[in-house]
Design a protein around this nucleic acid. Structure first.
Lengths: 221, 221
DNA sequence: TAATGTGAAAACCTTCACAGCT
DNA sequence: AGCTGTGAAGGTTTTCACATTA
């Protein structure tokens, strides 16, 4: 899949490239913390198990960040990529569903250092509404449209049981939400202009068992 | 990437195909519960936002499961795919790290119905060792090799802080583990014959912000 | 010398389109 | 008539290889 090229835009950027950029950002950030100033595509490639050519090609979609014969300045490259990805600002998120999973997500300490702030939580259970979960006030799912607008929420994290997930996603789409991180074990249907990323550990496990099968067969024939 | 073709094996199966099979299994299982007996590649494609041709091609790597003019028998197809993926058996797993995340994973009710049993947990903290987390006994990380062997653990779920993750993964590889589900926000380096799947909500969010940027720019220019 | 940036080639994956079966 | 299974075509992504520059 490619990002739709605007008419007259010089270059369509493959979606796979976008998917790799955050990996580059992460390693570069780590290098920055190690006070490494210059890095080559080869160094980066080794750390990420990616070919140097792929890294250079990926970066070339967005500009010329390196110096021939030298490599890339870590600080410069990481800030350029952060800007490309839109990571140079804060993103306002909300969590729908405050069951076990929703609570764990709200408590997850990895979001806020990366600029993702959870400002609201929603639940359908009236007993939950009005309570406080990890410093976030739980609101009724009926007030979602209003709160999303008022708080300027950009991204919504869905953590409701599978049977309700599609309905919640439909509601979010009607609210104008364009990015959804879905933890429910379904692949929700959304219009093309809405992005969904699914987090589904069971699917991940199920893609590994295929390979494990042959490993085990080889071990104990 | 393609799965390495054994010498003389007729057909190498693209890795992307393997990644889609669990999706098919999930929808087919749902259809089965709805007592649907026959399904066409078109029906399936609509439910999954995938082209019918792709579904037929994917399935064709593993056999001929359909009837021309009719479609696929849901029960037959789902059990065939389960067998292909190795889902017709139980897989023994362990969790490393019983902090907040590790506990949430152990408590997650979605694994066991799909045949993934968590039989052990490991932690480096001596105060944790010997305690019980969600019905699973916490063992010392030093005993990992022994327990993995004794319990016949196939898959290990890593939920330790980022700084320890590579070390834990290295240890697991030495223990002969060939499949790792990694929740730590790093991309661990492993030998080619070991499979890793990373669960990293921040990376997922960061790939969506790229697209959001242009959405917002369009809304408020 | 050492490494980038990039057209061109190669590899890979998806879609087409239709023969063939029910 | 309807749908599968599949070679072949088409499109996309990766890799190659080298001109170019510090």
């Amino acid at each position: 899949m490619r990002t739709t090229p605007s008419p007259g835009w010089p270059l369509a950027i493959p979606e796979v490239v976008i998917l790799r950029l955050p990996l580059y950002v992460r390693v570069l950030t780590q290098l920055q913390e190690e006070d490494v100033e210059i890095v080559s595509s080869r160094d980066l490639g080794e750390r990420l198990a990616v070919t140097p050519a792929q890294i250079r090609k990926d970066l070339s979609y967005f500009g010329r960040f390196g110096k021939q014969g030298r490599g890339y300045n870590v600080g410069y490259l990481v800030s350029a990529l952060r800007e490309v990805l839109g990571l140079d600002r804060e993103w306002i998120t909300a969590v729908v569903g405050v069951g076990r999973l929703g609570r764990a997500i709200i408590a997850y300490p990895g979001f806020s250092p990366e600029g993702f702030k959870v400002v609201a939580a929603f639940d359908a259970d009236p007993d939950m509404v009005g309570t406080d979960v990890g410093g976030v006030a739980v609101k009724s799912i009926n007030d979602m449209a209003e709160v999303i607008l008022r708080e300027g929420i950009n991204i919504v994290i869905v953590a409701v049981p599978a049977v309700y997930a599609q309905h919640v996603v439909d509601t979010l789409v009607r609210c104008g939400i364009k990015a959804i991180l879905n933890y429910a074990p379904i692949a929700p249907r959304v219009p093309q202009n809405v992005r969904v990323r699914n987090i589904d550990p069971v699917l991940s496990l199920q893609t590994m068992t295929y390979h494990l099968k042959s490993v085990l067969a080889r071990e104990a024939p």
